[in-house]
Amino acid sequence: MNSRERITRILAGEKADRCGFWLGNPHPDSWAGLHDYFGTSTEEELRLLLKDDFRWICPWNAYQHPEGKPVFDMQRPGKTLSEGGVFADTINIDEVESFNWPQPEYLDFTGYKETLENAGDFYRAGGLWSPFFHEACDIFGMENYFLKMYTHPEVVHAVTQHLIDYYLAANRLCFEECGDLIDGFFFGNDFGSQHDILVSPALFTEFIYPYFRKLTELGKEYHKQIILHSCGSIFRVMNDLIALGVDAFHPLQAKAADMDADTLKQHFSGKVAFIGAIDTQDLLVNGSPDDVIKEVNRIKSVLGPSVVISPSHEALLPDVPPRNIEAMAKAVAGK
């Protein structure tokens, strides 16, 4: 069974020869230390060494505006979550309509397709990252976005509709072009904090689900497995998200409320697959390799076989000792 078959089966809830493994997507600052420790020189070399089953291949550079404009020209003066973008003070939907929304015709997937063609026998998680919730946060400023859900819901709907329209058109083009080269539609939205979901279930129902469902439906139309990335505690909405078509959740932030493996197993076992679960808030940073091996074995016994072992946040920071990553990878294959 090759990696591609293994992960496909795990995400489909079928039997595989072992649990899967994904190194995650280490932060740019972490690579030098990793290569130094493992004696590797390229990302792919390290993934092969660690027997990584999963490749996240995202068309980050597909949008090529003739004047080099970004996909969403949000005009944010800073980077913090509360920093408002172009719609920070918008209360009128006409302003939303006159914004320079992205044009799918500037998308070019030829380079992307080439990368996929050379991806080898590994599971390919792809499609556009499509974080419409985050983009709404950025374009309004997170606090403004949440407030407008109450004070100017029509503005929030108008913006979300534009965001999702772009992602639907862009992903459709992507799936048309790349077809079966992509196995899973992997897209992301951080819906949770350490304690709970960011907005109430009622606001999810009105402002997130209708748009979210369009992405999952599009993925299903092209026979992709649906993998949702969300940081934080999303326990309260996981049943809904499963009903909306999610096949696997990533990264299962282990220390967030109700996101521990035992709770997930108790509530969602057999309904959905899991990718992640190895704590990055304490264990991988501060633990010993023995601690890591113990935890990987525990997660395998609790969530296996429908689990792809991976850090509970994919962007491994440079404070994670490479010996712990080595221990995590080795424990996946071991008994």
Partner: peptide, 11 residues
């Protein structure tokens, strides 16, 4: 009880 003002553009 929910009311909406959908944008013209979206229709």
């Amino acid at each position: 009880n929910k009311t909406f003002r959908f944008s013209t553009e979206s229709l």
